[in-house]
């Protein structure tokens, strides 16, 4: 299983907000295993979906040059227990971004019905943490799967361009795929 906790982006405005959806299903083990016979979507997997939505919003703001990680779930209020089988919409708004981190306000909806409100804080790793988080060519593949460049727009309404360093990694990967 891949560690993807969203399916697609619906909207992505650089440095402002991102909207993604997650199709949940009872065929996903964790939804039934969590509370057997009462297949609610675990809150932790929703938080992870928001973190992926927000993490990419924060990362894109820096041209995907920074290594962004979820640093803290500052606050989380769950109003409902979403039942697996529904489509959840994750909206993340970038409230503040600084060189060392970012703060996001998030909502989770099922249709028009509010399910949860969450505040997330992201940190941008510095040299104390030298590890690479993603292999760049795989990372670009993931961004394409999420439709980020299909729906993504800059603040001026222009399409978000794929950063050159990711395209270069993709070219190298295609030329020598066994290296990865």
């Amino acid at each position: 299983m891949r560690w993807f906790w969203i399916d697609r982006f619906l909207e992505f405005e650089s440095g402002v907000r991102a909207v993604a959806y997650k199709n949940t299903s009872i065929t996903e083990d964790h939804n039934d295993d969590y509370q057997p016979s009462y297949p609610i979507v675990p809150a932790s997997t929703i938080i992870e979906g928001l973190a992926q939505t927000g993490g990419l919003l924060v990362g894109e703001h820096g041209g995907f040059q920074e290594r962004v990680v979820l640093a803290k779930v500052a606050k989380a209020t769950f109003h409902k227990y979403p039942i697996a089988g529904t489509t959840l919409t994750y909206t993340v708004e970038l409230e503040d971004i600084q060189p060392d981190g970012a703060f996001c306000q998030c909502t989770v909806k099922d249709g028009d019905e509010l399910q949860a409100e969450v505040q997330l804080m992201f940190a941008q790793l510095d040299d104390r943490f030298p590890e690479e988080l993603f292999e760049p060519a795989n990372f670009l593949r993931m961004l394409r799967l999420f439709d980020l460049f299909k729906v993504g727009r800059t603040k001026d309404g222009q399409p978000i361009a794929i950063p050159e360093h990711l395209l270069e990694a993709e070219r190298l990967d295609m030329a020598a795929p066994e290296a990865n």
Partner: peptide
């Protein structure tokens, strides 16, 4: 340590100031 980043974000917003780390 990570809470200080959170606190700084909240103080900057509450007072409309910038806090150099």
């Amino acid at each position: 340590s990570i809470d200080f980043l959170d606190i700084v974000f909240r103080l900057e917003k509450a007072f409309g100031i910038e806090i150099p780390r």
